[in-house]
Design a protein around this nucleic acid. Structure first.
Lengths: 262, 262
DNA sequence: CGATCCCTTGATGTACTTCAATTTGCGTGG
DNA sequence: CCACGCAAATTGAAGTACATCAAGGGATCG
């Protein structure tokens, strides 16, 4: 029996069979060629797939954390609530992302994580991470690299919030979402389904839903995007990239320092 | 002869003697008790201290990177420039911080790093990091923990820029700077030297220098802070913490998952 | 077929910016 | 020690990009 989206097979007697597939391994494979031993170790992080409905809260701010997760299918987001009730969306999460990494540091979660679509996640214990780092130093290094890339992505957004106009922020968010969707393997060319409400776009960019609406209209009037039926297409991607001050952080990598595989 | 601030001794014939001291080890010591072998490994990162004058640019955005640094003495900041000439300060850097970690990922620097005071830094090669991760998995884990804490600090600032008023942002920045200064061992109680111009405060908080000035004045009129001669003191720290929505990210740690020391 | 959520558009308010001028503080050279 | 030069701080006045408030319209779902 094939578990849809779970990438795990069940034998006839209901015993799970580990399949040599791991979303996280696939992601790491973008940066290095994994050894068999490394792949095996990574597969252990995804032995317990769990399906969640859209809207499910995976983790709540201030709640105690026990586990980390690998996101296998669907899209999620993390956010914080401020005491005036406003929300800041911190990050959008896609297949291959590691979720709730703060569980490696904090007893209680600094953020809420919620499923934006139906989801498959694989929870795993923190101690697995300890073993992984010990047995596979090269994986430790690549995970560190990916963390650093996320930090740079956060500083990009910080600069956008601090120093760019509403229109630019919205444009940059659209580009980011499209690029992340494209990386999941879907051949999203110029046209893609935008799984965000305008309120969510606002909560990610520090704007109100009303103003997001006007900025989307302006981008449309400027001939940069077209919209319809929950989809967005980039009608002039070059101009959009320029307007959004976009830097592709997947370019210009240099990982030659990595330790040897084990 | 003692090299002021450099934490290195020179023997009479001018040969440097490695001293069992490392700012980075001291920082890690806040989280774990280091073994002798770990301390020795960390000390190798700080064998080449280098003094820099205030204003020196340690690294320029888009320039190729070769090395990482440990900051031993002084204060620095990192920032990006946008194409309209505006600046976003990303991070303030204090003794014990690791600088230019992006060199583990990118060929060219995504940010500029500049000395805000006279500085001592120790450059070290990326390959040293590879060896460190391989030989000392527990250090790999703790470095990962520190990276994660920095990510949470960035999301805190993201939420501040996206969803809080100018006054709150300035108050939060003052608290952050004071707490970081205090962590360096200086017994900064309520009164501390603020080594930032109002323009720099603005570039960190996404405001203009003019408005920063007005917000500082308001905080003063509200009885939350007092100012004079480049110094700031918190006259009502409780109220300031509340107003700034401050969360101490050094509390509530849980590192029980760490692998054993080697 | 109503309920609900999201999108859309207009009118008004305001927090912050921009521009401009003056003052304060401080290192530097005479 | 004083005079100068310059960066930083300060304050006022006017502009603007965004928020807020309010109302209506379209799609989806039980």
């Amino acid at each position: 029996m094939r578990k849809i989206g779970g990438f795990a097979l069940w034998s006839n007697d209901g015993e799970p069979i580990t399949v040599p597939h791991s979303c996280f391994a696939e992601r790491l494979g973008d940066y290095i060629t994994l050894t068999e031993s490394e792949t095996t170790a990574l597969t252990r992080l995804e032995e317990r797939p769990r399906d969640l409905r859209r809207g499910t809260i995976l983790l709540r701010e201030h709640d105690p954390m026990a586990e980390l997760f690998i996101l296998q299918r669907g899209m999620a987001m993390s956010y914080v609530l401020l005491d005036d009730g406003s929300r800041q969306i911190l990050r959008f999460l896609f297949p291959g992302d590691m979720l709730a990494v703060s569980a490696l540091v904090y007893r209680d979660s600094p953020e809420t994580i919620v499923a934006m679509t139906d989801l498959t996640v694989c929870p795993f214990d923190r101690t697995l991470m300890a073993g992984l780092l010990t047995e596979h130093p090269r994986l430790a290094a690549v995970i560190m690299v990916m963390n650093q890339m996320e930090k740079v992505a956060l500083t990009d957004r910080l600069a956008a919030l601090g120093r760019t106009s509403a229109k630019v922020r919205v444009a940059a968010l659209l580009l980011e979402i499209r690029n992340r969707i494209r990386l999941t393997g879907q051949a999203a060319t110029t046209d893609f389904a935008l799984p965000l409400t305008q309120e969510e776009i606002g909560d990610a960019t520090g704007l109100t839903a009303v103003h997001v609406n006007r900025m989307l209209r302006q981008l449309e009037e400027d001939g940069l995007i077209a919209r319809g039926a929950g989809r967005v297409s980039f009608t002039d991607e070059t101009a959009l990239l320029r307007a959004a001050n976009y830097v592709n952080r997947f370019d210009g990598l240099d990982l030659r320092w990595l330790p040897p595989a084990r």
